[in-house]
Design a protein around this nucleic acid. Structure first.
Length: 256
DNA sequence: AAGCAGACCAACCGCGGTGCA
DNA sequence: ATGCACCGCGGTTGGTCTGCT
């Protein structure tokens, strides 16, 4: 029944990683790639659990990590994304190439929270500190969702989907509430102007995989037309919340 | 120089969703 | 159909660093 345990906790190291452990992990992932964290520690000769290896790699060893201080632009982007997504650090990190969810979470708690408080803004609600709580003036996900404005509706609206039960909840509504975001809410890439995305997430247009339908051609998610066109310039990226994007996992968004 | 407090951040913990056996 | 392990995520902890007294 079930699977065998991922590791024997009694025989695993904990705490800070040593240089040697880092080197072993890097060497193994370079040779075999990411994935299968369960078997990785043993295969790499590490006395760590797979979970610990994954965390170390994702948060510290990955070669595409930026490290270093956050820029003012990143600060503002994090604030705006947090006002929309709440504490969905992995989603926010997805909008900031080279940054990890853990890094952003730490940065939020140590820097941005204080920054917002200094501005007189409640970091949890993104409202002025002295403003009494009121319903549905923003789509802050940090606040408890009301019946009228559930989070899913706000996300759907931000993604340009109409709510069956509330057809008036649209992207325009979101922009009205967040005028500073200068939203251009569009989910289809510019080159597919003849196709409008269906209201149902499941609808994938003909000749396109799901990734393509989300404007993710040429990404690792794309399983069709691979190599057929010449790079991202053909599509010019796509905009989400008025931001030039790399990859956003809408499937994850939908599930939350 | 020593002690203390606050800031910072890597790592751990616990939970929920998913999928294997 | 069910139980259980895996994976990924958000929250929290604790060690280290830095600045102040």
């Amino acid at each position: 029944m079930g699977r065998s345990p991922c590791c024997e906790k009694a025989h695993t190291n904990k705490g800070a990683w040593t240089k040697e452990e880092d080197e072993r992990l890097i060497a193994y992932i370079r040779a075999h790639g990411e994935g299968c964290w369960r078997s990785l520690p043993k295969a790499a000769g590490l006395l760590r659990c797979g979970k610990s290896c994954r965390l170390r790699w994702i948060n510290y060893l990955r070669p595409d990590l930026k490290r270093g201080n956050f820029t003012e632009e990143e600060d503002e982007l994090i604030i705006k994304l947090h006002s929309l997504l709440g504490n969905k650090w992995s989603l926010i990190a997805g909008r900031l190439p080279g940054r990890t969810d853990n890094e952003i979470k730490n940065y939020w708690n140590t820097h941005i929270r204080r920054k917002l408080l200094n501005r007189g803004i409640d970091p949890a609600t993104h409202r002025p500190l002295n403003e009494p709580a009121q319903d549905a003036t923003t789509i802050s996900f940090a606040a408890a969702p009301s019946k009228q404005e559930p989070r899913d509706d706000a996300i759907a609206a931000a993604l340009g989907y109409k709510n069956e039960n509330n057809p008036t909840t649209t992207a325009a509504t979101v922009q009205e509430r967040c005028p500073d975001l200068n939203l251009e809410l569009r989910i289809s890439p510019p080159c597919q102007q003849q196709h409008q995305p269906d209201a149902s997430m499941g609808m994938v247009e003909e000749n396109h995989c799901f990734a393509c339908s989300l404007g993710l051609q040429n990404s690792k998610e794309c399983s069709c037309r691979r190599g057929a066109s010449g790079g991202s310039s053909a599509h010019g990226g796509y905009d989400f919340l008025g931001l030039k994007t790399s990859v956003l996992d809408f499937r994850t968004l939908e599930m939350k």
